[in-house]
Simulated assay, not measured.
Amino acid sequence: MDRLVAFTVCLILVIALNSAEFSAKSLDSNINVIVQNVTFSFLNGDKEVKVLYPLIQEQLSDGVSPKVAILHKLGDRINGDRLITTAEGSWTYSSPQNIKLTLNYPRSGTGLVVTFLKVLVSQSTNKGRGYIISGGIGQRQLTVLIEADQTLYFKFSAEIYGY
């Protein structure tokens, strides 16, 4: 387990040091979107990282098409909440890539209380995961990591609800 944590820490460090940032469309410019193309990793067991909590994942494709839609979601819509921010983006690659999408809400300051998160991802493989890195439901901050492995394209649409 320690090796897995060390690997995760190193992977996050590599991503942070070797990332390309892209802007995304946003409802209120209060969400920060970072998409990274990960080409290598290394191990460093000296760092600590929070446990990553998996999101609920539903594969929406029929398994026949080369396009795979994966819905990552967390929490539930509640009476009185509203859409507080959105983000979307799309990229195509000439060779398979390992992609890391980081969504940070709010971009700065204090956000509204988060009740529900939905991230719909389209990619060319069914290899992908979603994690909460910090914050979460019932909190005023949320950082989400979405991974897509060996994909030729990556498209996402994210919605965060709250009050």
Rank of each mutant, 00 (worst) to 15 (best):
L27I: 07
T8R: 09
V113S: 12
Y161N: 06
K127V: 08
T143Y: 02
I56T: 13
D2V: 11
E48F: 14
P96C: 08
L43H: 02
G111Y: 08
S41R: 03
S94Q: 06
L120A: 08
F156I: 01
D2C: 08
F154P: 00
L43M: 14
L13I: 13
E159W: 13
G109K: 02
N30Q: 13
T85E: 15
W91T: 00
E147G: 00
A148I: 03
C10E: 11
A87D: 04
T102L: 14
D81I: 09
S134N: 08
L60Y: 06
Y93F: 15
S23Q: 10
V68D: 04
I146Q: 02
I78P: 01
S61R: 03
D81Y: 12
L71M: 10
R140P: 00
L83C: 05
A69F: 11
L142G: 01
Y163E: 10
L145N: 02
T115Y: 11
R107C: 01
G109R: 02
N98C: 05
V9H: 09
S41D: 07
V35Q: 06
P54E: 07
G75P: 01
L55Y: 04
G89N: 09
A20F: 14
S134E: 14
F116Q: 02
P66C: 05
S23G: 12
I15M: 14
L55E: 04
T151L: 06
K67T: 08
K127W: 12
V14R: 09
I137P: 01
V5T: 09
K100D: 13
Y153M: 09
Q150T: 04
D2E: 15
F154W: 05
P96M: 07
G130I: 07
F7G: 03
Y105V: 04
A16Y: 11
V121T: 04
Y105I: 05
S95H: 09
T143D: 10
H72A: 04
T8I: 12
K47I: 15
D62I: 04
N37H: 09
E147Y: 06
E48K: 13
L52K: 02
T39F: 12
D28P: 00
G63P: 00
F22K: 03
T39N: 15
Y131F: 15
A158H: 03
T102I: 14
K127F: 15
G109A: 05
R129S: 11
Q97E: 15
V35M: 09
V68L: 02
N37V: 12
G138P: 02
L60I: 07
S23H: 07
G75E: 06
G89W: 10
R129L: 14
T115D: 14
G89A: 07
P106Y: 04
Q36D: 14
L103K: 02
D76R: 13
N30L: 01
D62Q: 03
V51Y: 10
V121D: 00
K118P: 00
F42D: 01
I70D: 09
S19V: 12
